[in-house]
Write a protein that binds this DNA or RNA. Structure first.
Lengths: 154, 154
DNA sequence: ACCGTCTCGACAGGAATAATCGGATCATGC
DNA sequence: GCATGATCCGATTATTCCTGTCGAGACGGT
């Protein structure tokens, strides 16, 4: 799991939008409150708009707002919107790999890994982030003190 | 989840080593059977050796072999050996992030995500790959037909 | 008409990634 | 001791990706 700055920014901006329901928020405001380079953010917001995740309004009183209710936008939607498919191995989707010989079972591991990422990223919505209340299944995992250690023990 | 060529190569080579127990295998052989650029592979094998995961023998009859029994080397070990920490956000470890405002709950999501990746990558060993028999917990996830779809439904 | 905002392609600098080169070093057999 | 076969390893290149910036244009509201 490697999250690029682009994805990180997109999610933080989206979270901010989710918190400010029904009013348009300017790129400038998002940039300063979340400490994101402004022009870079514009770039990202444009991507999100083309992905159908945010709407935009021009002119005075303009800005950005979510295209759907926050509860209907998952983190996975955002990530895919700016960074393409969630999972890939050397640029290939896991299901398209053709490993040979001993390496063959690796493909099933990547599939499992992706499924398990989806279980989280498809479940958590912007509404969850905005309210601070994560779904139980996710909270259970995050609450394990082991999960917060840099290096897993045993 | 983005797997670099380096990691992919490392895992495939390691799988090959796991299958060929107790004999040393040359870089040349690994490169051809797994279709990996040879000099690049040497580079990777050197990293694995420095990480204490493989041993090497020089001279005729030389080559590489695993430093420990395959059952005692997890995929996570290999990945960390060549690519550093499993998870990071913009170069920072998830536990070191300091999000502010609305974005705050995101950190817990990354922690959960990492934990759930670990659950797979720490569990699956090279012995599992070599035998083709994945742990039940992983197999259950990988066997779900949903997991093989490019885009999740519902 | 004017101001504030989004729109959007181009592009630059740097970092990461992928891969290669060439030689040094070491073990083994003869 | 010499040839051979292999690892060792720093240096180097090539390419792609990532981050971030610029500037001119389009558009909405007043």
């Amino acid at each position: 799991m490697r999250l690029s700055a682009r994805v990180d920014y997109a999610l933080r901006a989206a979270a901010e939008l989710a918190a400010t329901d029904s009013r348009a928020v300017t790129a400038e405001h998002l940039a300063t409150t979340q400490k994101i380079p402004r022009k870079f953010l514009e770039n990202i917001l444009l991507q999100l708009r083309r992905a159908g995740l945010v709407r935009s309004l021009r002119g005075a009183e303009g800005g950005y707002l979510l295209a759907r209710p926050p509860a209907e936008i998952s983190l996975a939607d955002i990530i895919r919107g700016v960074d393409g498919p969630l999972a890939n191995v050397r640029g290939e989707r896991p299901e398209h790999l053709n490993y040979s010989g001993t390496a063959l079972p690796l493909q099933r591991v990547w599939i499992a890994l992706r499924a398990s990422e989806r279980a989280i990223l498809e479940t958590v919505t912007l509404a969850d982030i905005a309210s601070g209340e994560l779904p139980v299944s996710v909270r259970e995992i995050a609450e394990d003190p082991q999960a917060w250690l840099a290096r897993p023990t045993g």
